[in-house]
């Protein structure tokens, strides 16, 4: 699972609705893998609007990934270093094993072989 997808996921337990707590999911016991892919400027520009950048920098810092500025540059297209680093963090960093815990309700989503288990129990629907 790429960090991009982690940035899009929030806890979906029915009673867990506080937006301050159900996103981002807290990563624990994470194993990372770097998979090289081709950089696509169009895609990155499209994604910049969708990604929650604050959450991304926080998560990156927790995982020990450095090199992302605290805020998105005003003209990201003119900053190739930023674009490359964003591509590396967002699209090339894969989580292979680990857990994602919700800070609101405490539900733990496990990640196995890069596939997060997002199933809920009956009482959480």
């Amino acid at each position: 699972m790429r960090l991009l997808t982690h940035n899009m996921l929030q806890c979906h337990v029915k009673k867990c609705t506080d937006p301050a707590l159900n996103f981002p999911l807290q990563l624990q016991d994470i194993e990372l893998e770097q998979v090289e892919t081709e950089e696509n400027e169009d895609l990155l520009l499209n994604l910049i609007n969708k990604v929650d950048y604050n959450a991304l920098t926080t998560t990156a810092a927790q995982l020990g990934l450095v090199g992302l500025p605290n805020a998105i540059p005003k003209d990201p297209q003119a900053d190739p270093a930023f674009m490359t680093r964003l591509h590396e963090v967002l699209l090339e960093t894969n989580i292979t094993q680990g857990k994602m815990a919700c800070r609101g309700c405490g539900h733990v989503y496990t990640i196995k072989d890069g596939i997060p288990n997002m199933l809920l129990a009956e009482h959480e629907i």
Partner: peptide, 13 residues
């Protein structure tokens, strides 16, 4: 990929 039961709703922002 994600293991997800769509009837439980989807966990996306």
């Amino acid at each position: 990929l994600m293991l997800h039961d769509i009837g439980q709703g989807m966990a996306f922002r």
